[in-house]
Design a protein around this nucleic acid. Structure first.
Lengths: 186, 186
DNA sequence: GTTGCATATGTAAAAGTAGACATATAGATA
DNA sequence: TATCTATATGTCTACTTTTACATATGCAAC
């Protein structure tokens, strides 16, 4: 069982989902394509951690709705208690910043501006997810406490928001440093 | 040529380095082991982007000092100008936070505390690297401007520092939220 | 003494990831 | 009419990454 498998189990504790929905839903948490997810679902079903129900659809292709089993919850619980490995971050921008002296001022600025715009759109996306999670909290009549299923997601989404804000601040600051050192014509 | 190859070229623009030094030096920028780096150096030498000089040592194993070629600088420059792909972040903690309701309060707190301590040690490491970069700036008589080779590293290290600080702030905040919802005995 | 660490370079196997290929329907857009 | 997007599930290949294996010396700790 790799990390992604446990992630799929984690998503399935909230509600039963199809492979397609898992592919969409895991995006804010982990980068993975459907070609990774479908085989893992099959292997976890063989292990007895999840089971599926086939739903026939006339307008769209048939789908499989996966549900986590008691055993699945149990192995997930054991895993969650284990210390988390350090995060793995791979960012091309690190190398491009390191080599920034090889670029022209407008290219350097464009590099940072593109990243900033991407971060801003990500931030918006996370804010929407936070709203959806708040709605779910109300719907379930939960309060903000550890045993509420919406609580962990609340923490997680705040983590992403704080990281995105920090990244945007960096871009703004770095663009400022660039403009200070090589003022644009105007 | 993959991203890591360009990263190695980037490091080699600052000074000639051995494969071992590259393995150590790339750590703050990208996660990679020596088993990835040595084959890439061989392949880049075949392409003419770097060349090496063998240094015989009596007390330690012989080493190869790699230098970037004109052609290497040129391909790196072309690559740096291309837009940077979005960063890839894979953090187990995301899944563990999502499943936090499966844990006990002290386990949840320990999860965040361990991450916070790791982040703090990383922050210290980056602060040392910033000092070393400042020293290099002085040594070379450079000022903080784009064309100085220390400038990009200055930006990059600030990026890492800001990200680490944001992560530490998140951990502190999240531990606070946990304590609010399930106060510790005392 | 021996275990572990730093230096130094490599290879091999296994696991994980990305991108394309494959199929099928419905609806929107060009 | 053709292309694109969303839904829905799958496979296959190429590439990247991790972990272990392999060798060699000197030094410090136990």
């Amino acid at each position: 069982m790799n990390t992604l498998s446990y992630g799929l189990l984690a998503l399935l504790t909230a509600n039963p989902l199809t492979g397609y929905e898992l592919t969409q839903g895991i995006k804010p948490l982990w980068r993975a394509g459907h070609s990774q997810i479908y085989p893992l679902l099959q292997s976890m079903e063989e292990k007895g951690f999840i089971r599926h129900e086939r739903i026939e659809q006339s307008d769209k292709p048939d789908k499989k709705i996966y549900t986590i089993t008691e055993e699945g919850i149990s192995v997930l619980q054991e895993w969650v208690r284990l210390p988390a490995e350090p995060a793995v971050l791979r960012d091309e921008l690190h190398f491009k910043l390191y080599s920034l002296w090889l670029t022209e001022p407008d290219e350097a600025k464009a590099l940072l501006q593109r990243r900033m715009e991407f971060n801003r759109s990500e931030l918006q996306r996370y804010n929407l997810l936070i709203k959806a999670n708040e709605a779910l909290l109300d719907e379930r009549g939960e309060t903000r406490e550890l045993k509420a299923t919406t609580f962990g997601r609340y923490l997680l989404l705040q983590k992403r928001v704080m990281a995105m804000k920090a990244s945007i601040e960096f871009c703004e600051w770095a663009i400022g440093e660039l403009e200070r050192s090589s003022p644009p014509p105007g």
